[in-house]
Design a protein around this nucleic acid. Structure first.
Lengths: 235, 235
DNA sequence: TCGTTAATGTGTTTAAATTACACAATTTGG
DNA sequence: CCAAATTGTGTAATTTAAACACATTAACGA
């Protein structure tokens, strides 16, 4: 490691005092299942919060970029490599971790639940409906809310929800995702109009299977067409 | 300090390896002067970047919240206590600081230039036009751009620009601030209409002084009236 | 096989928001 | 008293968003 003694000019504390802070990354991994927005959580096993739900996180390694650390967590927990990930906020209250000073940078991620292989039940790793969570370990509920809010803002003018769906999806499924994220109902005709106008969807000329009603057409997202800037997608 | 040995369960590295990361805070302190958006900078004096412009930052102290650290920097550098401050993003590339591993959380701040007492010329502390900056020390240019972009988004639906102005201001001054931040021209009549509609401004029944033309009325911002959510203020 | 059920697919009308735009009035300064 | 510069003001045109209904399709069960 490079010499670090040069930090002393920052203040009157000695170098080693500044290296008593640990840095972690916490990931809010969103999925969509059974018409609900869900988040991947485990049961906390540190004594102060035993049994409470906890986000997936880890300390950042000394030779690891912040983004790399969150990709690593995603990969370790879901087996997925190519995921949507966005940094949200860093939480640095002195007392936020009972074991010492840990500052955490939070990310949210959007994955397709059906692509995820949960590493079997380790600490009861599972998908939990976001709207059913009213308590978590540490400040993780605050983090979850911050990430959910950021997601809400994001989907309004960026085509990111496709990351929550399989490659082929119907317009109903797409609309359900928006409704789950925003916790609101949308007008079907206006919704369709908006997406066709954006020209992001490729008609696959296939129909849904195994639905107990008239099947809808299937589409895929064409990322190459993300050129025009949408206004108010999510309304 | 509380025991920290419990961190070991996070991975195979020993505890002390995780405490080789330092955490800093960097503040992008925006001001408005001579019709331009400016930022408070100093000349960097570490050898790798000597002479380049640098943002104001410091290492976070072990017993200090992140937000507290940025308020401290603001207070130390500008003498101001009650400022607008917003966290933007955390930059954690392994090699971003030549002296070792330093992860930095960035904030932007909005202050009234005329309220600031610059601690006389320490390291050439000065206000610099944002649009004239094309090179900075470290990754500070990236940070500046990220904060400027966040400010642009913010002003579109939040009444924060008042923090850049004196208590009493004319509508022209207010519009100039928006134009400086967004680097665009706005229609005067539509701009006025929008702000009167919002009902945020209190007519002080006073006129500008010492302008070489017809003086405009002076207003102040009434924070109590920030109830209705604006749509597209900045257009 | 036929009715019931549940969802798909499709346009138009209305309201709201945004944009474009011009001229008289006021003050300063020469 | 004239020129220069800027304030103050309203309406029409355009664009965007919101509200809304009915015929069609496939599955299911009687």
């Amino acid at each position: 490691m490079k010499q670090i003694s040069r930090f002393s000019h920052f203040g009157e504390l000695s170098d080693k005092d500044y290296f008593r802070i640990a840095l972690s990354v916490d990931c809010v991994i969103f999925g969509f299942e059974d018409g609900e927005l869900k988040v991947l959580v485990i049961n906390c096993n540190i004594k102060e919060y035993r049994g409470k739900l906890s986000l997936l996180g880890d300390l950042v390694r000394p030779d690891e970029d912040l983004d790399s650390a969150s990709y690593r967590i995603l990969r370790e927990r879901t087996g997925l490599g190519d995921v949507y990930l966005e940094q949200v906020q860093t939480f640095g209250a002195v007392d936020r971790h009972p074991a010492g000073r840990v500052i955490t940078t939070t990310y949210f991620s959007l994955v397709n639940v059906r692509d995820v292989q949960l590493t079997l039940a380790e600490n009861d790793l599972h998908w939990h409906p976001v709207n059913d969570i009213h308590d978590m370990a540490f400040d993780h509920l605050t983090i979850l809310h911050a990430c959910h809010e950021r997601l809400r803002e994001k989907v309004d003018d960026h085509p990111v929800v496709f990351n929550l769906l399989p490659k082929k999806f119907s317009l109903r499924e797409l609309q359900c995702v928006y409704e789950a994220i925003l916790n609101t109902r949308l007008d079907r005709r206006n919704f369709r109009k908006k997406f066709f106008m954006m020209d992001w969807l490729v008609d696959l000329d296939e129909l849904e299977q195994d639905v107990p009603h008239r099947p809808g057409k299937l589409y895929r997202f064409n990322a190459a067409k993300f050129t025009r800037k949408p206004k108010a997608l999510a309304r």
